[in-house]
């Protein structure tokens, strides 16, 4: 009797296990069918490429890279912006811009980075940021013959460095220089056009009230771009990202609110939701309806679209087209 019971228990334990195995098998199959052949990209020259990545490590390649796995969304964006999108053979799961990148097989990134997935894609280089990779992970990849290049921009200047770095890696220095130039021009034009005297304030909402208010403080791209446009961040005293109290937002009374909350197509839109909050009615931005919803990470990713984000913010605040 007891044995029968145990057998029964075993049987029950088996079902989830089989299910899991099935799921894993299915994902593996779908992953294979999606894999495209990025090796078709032509290699421009055969001269050796030497770069120093943003952690100061020296990387030497025989020639410009033709197969790249990029884990960070901003690196994917830079690759496409300099016309090297075709070299991407694998993307981190959160890379979603431009739309074409979605056709590239995705790999896990961040804390869940899966080395096997990356090795299976046979890239020459792996582009990533230092945020979640351990030294052991990096060493394992190098052992498999994959050069790890770290791009870790902390400010707009860092983005220029990253673009230059990636441009050199891909043998597209000119495109990279042009991209950097255009970004610099955008920012320059905007700062020159700004008429503000620095008294207008802005509040960046990273996470909406129902999931706890998080904002971007000093040392973030949002803060830096706001500074360029002579807007002062009401949470400039918070370093990086922080969960803040609702009372302080009301107290600091921002003139503008920029939310990067996602909209899933149901319920009120992020800006409507802010307008409907009780207790927020007297905030200047809410009274004037000056709320901007940046849906596509324009100001939160260290990539070329920071210029677009700056333009959008300028247009929103000063009511005229920036560039």
């Amino acid at each position: 009797m007891k044995q029968l019971k145990q057998l029964k228990q075993l049987k029950h334990a088996g079902i989830p296990a089989i299910l899991m195995a099935l799921i894993m098998l299915l994902t593996a199959i779908s992953g294979c069918s999606k894999a495209n052949d990025g090796a078709a990209t032509t290699i421009k020259s055969k001269t050796a490429v030497t770069v120093t990545d943003m952690t100061g490590r020296k990387i030497i390649l025989d020639g410009p890279a033709a197969r790249v796995v990029a884990l960070t969304p901003s690196d994917c964006e830079i690759l496409y912006a300099i016309g090297a999108g075709g070299t991407i053979v694998g993307r981190g799961e959160y890379c979603d811009y431009p739309a074409e990148v979605m056709n590239v097989p995705s790999v896990q990134s961040g804390a869940n980075t899966n080395i096997e997935q990356i090795i299976a894609l046979k890239p020459q280089i792996l582009l990533m940021s230092t945020m979640a990779q351990t030294d052991e992970q990096v060493a394992a990849l190098e052992k498999a013959g994959i050069k790890v290049v770290v791009s870790d921009a902390q400010d707009v200047a860092g983005v220029y460095t990253a673009i230059e770095l990636i441009g050199t890696l891909m043998g597209r220095q000119q495109e990279a220089a042009a991209l950097t130039e255009s970004m610099k021009n955008t920012f320059k034009t905007l700062s020159a056009k700004v008429k503000g005297d620095g008294t207008k304030t802005v509040y960046f909402e990273v996470s909406p009230l129902q999931y706890e208010l998080w904002t971007a403080g000093s040392g973030t791209f949002m803060n830096e771009i706001a500074g360029m446009l002579k807007l002062s961040n009401i949470f400039g005293d918070v370093s990086a990202w922080g969960k803040i109290t609702e009372e302080q937002v009301i107290e600091r009374d921002p003139d503008y609110i920029v939310t990067i909350a996602m909209y899933f197509g149901e319920g009120p839109k992020p800006e409507e939701e802010i307008l409907s909050r009780t207790g927020w009615k007297n905030i200047t931005a809410v009274k004037n309806g000056d709320i901007l919803n940046l849906q596509n990470n324009e100001l939160s990713r260290p990539g070329p679209r920071l210029a677009d984000g700056a333009n959008m913010l300028y247009e929103f605040v000063y009511g005229e087209t920036g560039n």
């Binding site: 009372e247 009780t278 207790g279 927020w280 007297n282």
Partner: peptide
């Protein structure tokens, strides 16, 4: 009178 204390106290705190 409209002041910040009103919404902070009555609607938030």
């Amino acid at each position: 009178a409209e002041s910040k204390a009103v919404p902070i106290l009555l609607s938030v705190r």
